[in-house]
Measured scan of single mutants.
Amino acid sequence: NDEAKKEAEKLWKNNKSEDEIKERLERAGISPDEAEQWLQELR
């Protein structure tokens, strides 16, 4: 999970869309709710 979150953070810094980041997190096995929460922390 931490690995996926690091990846999400990297994508965020590269200005990827939130949808793309969420999709990537969900593919890594993170629930949509958790993915949404993680994005809010990044904002």
Rank of each mutant, 00 (worst) to 15 (best):
D2I: 13
D33H: 10
S17N: 09
W12T: 02
K16M: 15
K16P: 05
L42E: 03
E7H: 06
E23H: 07
E34I: 14
K16N: 08
E34C: 14
K22H: 02
E7K: 04
R24F: 15
K6A: 11
E18W: 15
L11A: 06
K5P: 01
R27Y: 11
D33M: 11
E20D: 05
D33K: 10
R27F: 13
A8K: 01
D19R: 12
L25V: 01
E26K: 11
S31Y: 03
W38A: 01
L25E: 02
W12A: 03
E23K: 09
L25F: 02
E20M: 06
E3N: 09
L39Q: 01
A8P: 00
I30W: 12
I30C: 00
Q37H: 07
L39D: 02
S17C: 01
S31H: 09
E7L: 15
A4E: 05
N1H: 14
N15S: 07
N1K: 15
E23A: 11
K13T: 05
E23F: 06
N1E: 11
N14W: 08
R27T: 10
E41A: 12
D19V: 09
K5S: 02
K13H: 11
K16W: 14
I21N: 01
G29F: 00
E18Q: 05
S31Q: 07
E20K: 03
D33W: 12
L42S: 01
S17W: 04
R27S: 14
Q37T: 08
R43L: 07
W12G: 02
E34S: 03
W12Q: 01
A35M: 10
E3I: 11
N15T: 03
L39R: 00
E41L: 10
E36N: 08
W12Y: 12
N14Y: 07
K22M: 12
L11D: 08
Q40Y: 07
K10I: 13
E26S: 07
K5C: 08
Q40I: 09
Q40V: 08
L11N: 03
L25C: 00
E41W: 13
E18C: 06
W12R: 00
L25Y: 00
K22R: 14
E9T: 08
E26I: 14
L25D: 04
E23L: 10
R24T: 13
R43K: 13
L25Q: 00
K5Y: 15
K10V: 12
N15A: 07
E20Q: 05
L42C: 06
R27P: 06
A8S: 03
A28P: 04
W38S: 01
E18V: 12
E23G: 05
R24D: 09
R24Y: 15
K10Q: 12
A28R: 06
A4C: 15
K5G: 01
N14P: 01
K13S: 09
A4P: 05
Q40G: 05
N14C: 15
S17P: 05
I30G: 01
K10F: 13
E20R: 02
E9N: 04
W38L: 08
E36P: 01
I30Q: 01
A28C: 11
L11K: 02
Q37C: 12
E36F: 05
K10Y: 13
L25H: 00
P32G: 09
S17V: 02
A28F: 15
D2H: 13
E34A: 08
A4L: 15
E36M: 09
E20F: 12
N14S: 11
R27L: 14
W38R: 00
I21F: 03
L39G: 00
L42W: 12
R43W: 06
E3M: 10
W12P: 02
A8E: 01
K5D: 02
G29C: 06
I30S: 01
W38M: 09
